[in-house]
């Protein structure tokens, strides 16, 4: 699968996320507290609200609408009302850019 240039590493604050749209898909890219980058689908699996306005706490993202929570490293749904895991995508950093494999 191709690697897509998504953003600069300093576009995302530590312990935060940004939205990244590519073609007809939308993603969430996270900057973890220990400096790593992760990528998941952008929409919550509960009611498809975008996670971009959610709260990142350590390694979890909380949906801004119903507080469903996911581990953004694995996509695992950790708290209702989410019951379905998020899809995750590989990331790598090259030359100050975050690339995602989609």
């Amino acid at each position: 699968m191709p690697w897509i240039d998504a953003c600069a590493t300093d576009d995302i604050d530590e312990e935060d996320l940004i939205r990244f749209d590519h073609e007809d898909r939308t993603f969430a890219i996270y900057h973890s507290p220990d400096g790593d980058y992760f990528c998941t689908d952008g929409l919550c699996t509960h009611e498809h609200v975008h996670l971009e306005d959610g709260l990142v706490m350590e390694y979890e993202i909380e949906c801004p609408k119903h507080n469903a929570t996911f581990d953004y490293r694995t996509g695992e749904a950790k708290r209702a009302p989410a019951c379905v895991n998020l899809n995750t995508y590989k990331t790598k950093v090259e030359g100050g850019r975050v690339l995602i494999e989609v």
């Binding site: 509960h46 009611e47 609408k65 119903h66 209702a80």
Partner: peptide
């Protein structure tokens, strides 16, 4: 009621 309240917010 967790689900009912989620619907109330949706």
């Amino acid at each position: 009621w967790r689900w009912s309240h989620a619907r109330h917010h949706t």
